[in-house]
Simulated assay, not measured.
Amino acid sequence: MTEIRTPRLLLRRWLDDDLVPMADINADPQVMRWVDDGSVLDLEHTAEAIERWKEEWDEEGFGLFAVELLASGELVGFTGLSLPEFLPEVLPSVAISWRLGSQFWGQGYASEAAQATLEFALQDRGIDRVVSINRMGDDASENVSRKLGMTPERQTAHPVYGFPLHVHAIDLTEFVG
Rank of each mutant, 00 (worst) to 15 (best):
M1S: 13
M1I: 05
T2G: 00
T2Q: 00
R5T: 12
T6W: 05
P7Y: 07
L10T: 00
L10N: 00
L11N: 01
R13S: 05
L15M: 11
L15N: 07
D17P: 05
D17A: 15
P21K: 15
M22F: 15
D24C: 14
I25M: 14
A27T: 11
A27V: 07
D28M: 13
Q30W: 11
Q30Y: 12
R33I: 04
D37N: 15
V40W: 08
L41N: 06
E44A: 13
H45M: 10
H45G: 04
T46C: 09
A47Q: 14
A47T: 13
A47R: 15
A47E: 14
A47I: 06
E48N: 13
A49D: 06
K54Q: 06
K54T: 02
K54E: 06
E60G: 03
G61I: 03
A66Q: 06
V67M: 02
V67R: 03
V67T: 10
L69M: 10
L69Q: 03
S72F: 08
S72N: 13
G73N: 01
V76P: 01
V76G: 03
G77T: 01
G77L: 02
F78Y: 14
F78E: 09
T79N: 10
T79Y: 00
G80W: 00
L81G: 03
L81C: 07
L83G: 01
P84G: 04
E85H: 14
L87Y: 01
L87T: 05
E89C: 09
E89K: 11
V90L: 09
L91K: 13
L91T: 08
P92Q: 06
P92I: 07
S93E: 11
V94R: 06
A95L: 02
A95G: 06
S97D: 10
W98A: 00
S102P: 13
Q103Y: 08
Q103I: 12
F104I: 12
Q107L: 14
G108K: 11
A110C: 09
S111C: 04
E112Q: 08
E112A: 07
A114N: 04
A114C: 07
A116G: 06
L118C: 04
E119H: 15
E119D: 15
E119F: 12
F120M: 10
L122E: 05
R125W: 02
R125V: 02
I127S: 09
D128K: 11
R129I: 01
V131Y: 10
S132N: 07
N134R: 00
R135K: 12
M136C: 07
G137I: 00
D138H: 14
D139I: 11
D139F: 10
S141K: 08
S141R: 08
M150S: 05
T151A: 14
Q155N: 14
Q155A: 12
T156M: 07
H158K: 03
H158L: 02
P159G: 06
P159M: 08
P159Y: 04
G162V: 09
L165I: 07
L165M: 01
H166A: 03
V167S: 02
V167M: 01
A169C: 11
A169G: 09
A169F: 09
I170Q: 12
L172M: 07
T173L: 09
T173W: 05
E174R: 15
V176T: 12
G177W: 09
